[in-house]
Design a protein around this nucleic acid. Structure first.
Lengths: 190, 190, 190, 190
DNA sequence: GATGAATGAGTGTTCATTCAT
DNA sequence: CATGAATGAACACTCATTCAT
């Protein structure tokens, strides 16, 4: 028996991400992905139940990788603001070095497939960050508002600013990233 | 010779928006739109060069309508913060009463078609708002940061908060809208 | 507007029947049928909802034609036995001159699609024959047994005998047909 | 070196028959059969040259079993009519207790594969029955007509009557089976 | 202007079979 | 012997667009 060629699965995932980057989520068909991965369309169905499964699994994979990157060096003994800032900067660094991954998540999140991911499971990976925010509220360091509102001002801005489509004229460098964080912080701090 | 039947064109636009709302951007094919508009697929090509043209034109149309709604009651003699707050509240009211339009813009903005819109032309419709922001900077009422960063904290949050997919557990009422505005304002104010 | 090209629909039906004759029901794919009809696969879907619809509709069409042929010259004032014999002979004549149609019905009837036809509606076309059998029972000319049993000995034998696959060595001529009818008649007569 | 695992081969045959029963001949793919037999698709190709070989071999196997059942208790010293009647009743008993096998033969016989079986070889198993019919003709007990015609009235009716698809409203019990035999007998007897 | 017919190219998926172990 | 991985070719069907009227 031939054993599952992990390289092959990885090639499929990579092809998926790259193709979405090149031609967009909508136009990324199974056969195009297969061709880019140098694999038969049928092979794809050995590793994934169907297209949806491929796209969702890839998304979850990427998100995990992302959460790891964002939480890199996480240390909640640091001053509250610094923890957030580190997280913020990690985010931009990740996007900068993983443009394709980032763009994949952006396109996926706005596709109908997004409704199929187990959100709870995903959130687990960001739990340390969520916890620290709740602690911040308790300690009256940040405003006591619904979590979604907080997220709107400290998580989503990263996605918007890093999205070159949305911020065409903005050059992302250390300065602008720091300036932007200042706004985010001002928004949520008490 | 008859003139192009505007009712027909309007039916097409309406059908497009409704269908995107019902079955999503990706699945909204030309023939389905035509059927929903009670029109032949061929008719569609009288009014629009192709599918892309239809979707883009519809988007521009919706955005114009949206800008009008957002700028409703605009009066730059009012205190700066109040102008913004009115704009903010207009935004949520628009979304509430035009869910389909809003969702269309959201789905469009994350599709590859979005790259085809003449952004400059669109921005024209929001010019009063842009101008007032620049004035705010000059008058040192708000922070002197790149416009994209400002937008990230006072325009995009509206889109995020109103997007039920992104903020599943948040109930949008007068209170939460006001609370959220407080954060936006704190972010940008000097 | 182009009008529906009836020739095209007829070409599709004919292609379906001929192809089933040549390569069998199972192997007759939509694209092969389309090719044989000199038509795009997509065209087929203008006339029929799907493959199933095409096959079932074709079957019903053929069955109607068949019933007409079998009941040709039907006259229930004739002696009972003669009515049946005429029907019997009509059957073999039909098969002889419409081998393809006959074979199509045979293959269809043994496919899973066969469960989708409205049997009642089909039976309507054979009603005169059914009625006369019931009359024969009342008048004590033929045996009073369940209808399915009667059918087994006077309708199905036609299908078996005419099926060259089942009766390889039997030459169908006036003599053998008459001889066979004698057996059928002996089976059911009182 | 191990010998071919007969259990495995039997599992394959059984799976084939059961699957055909459940989802029909057309939809029964090699991999589905393999899965049902708890065996790899590749294993199947150790025992059979290809799908066709599998299906045909299974058919022959079933037919052998069937002939044995039908000829069970065969004794040509019994009165001619009784021999036939025993055969007839054996047939219905077999179908009743081996619905799956029967249905497999029915579906197979109407598939293009049926042309691949060595009919002569199959007929060998029914030889005693064939011989007795010829004897019946010689002894002027039954009509002197081509064998195919005889078969049409004493073998095929069993298949039709037992086929619930063809005889939907007929309840098969001792009475109806006997009644039907009466017709068959009347058909062929002199 | 308006239409439904018509289509080649594409969709996601399954097929029977072979390969490497 | 037995396997699951791997595949090219096919499957039923839909697409955006054009044609003839």
């Amino acid at each position: 028996m031939r054993i599952k060629d992990l390289n092959k699965q990885e090639a499929i995932i990579e092809a998926t991400i790259l193709l979405v980057n090149e031609i967009g989520f909508v136009s990324s068909s199974v056969s195009k992905i297969a061709k880019k991965a140098n694999v038969s369309p049928a092979t794809l169905y050995i590793y994934y139940k169907n297209k949806e499964d491929l796209l969702v699994s890839t998304y979850v994979e990427v998100k995990k990788k992302m959460s790891k990157a964002l939480l890199n060096g996480f240390d909640d003994s640091m001053p509250f603001r610094d923890v957030l800032e580190k997280f913020w900067k990690n985010g931009f660094k990740f996007v900068e070095t993983n443009k394709a991954l980032f763009q994949y998540t952006e396109q996926f999140a706005n596709s109908p497939f997004s409704e199929l991911v187990n959100q709870e499971e995903l959130e687990k990976h960001f739990e340390p960050m969520i916890k620290i925010l709740h602690k911040g509220i308790e300690q009256k360091v940040i405003k006591d508002v619904p979590f979604d509102i907080l997220a709107t001002f400290i998580f989503y801005p990263m996605l918007i600013l890093a999205n070159s489509k949305k911020c065409k004229s903005l050059e992302l460098n250390n300065d602008t990233i720091e300036v932007a964080f200042k706004l985010a912080w001002d928004a949520i701090k008490l």
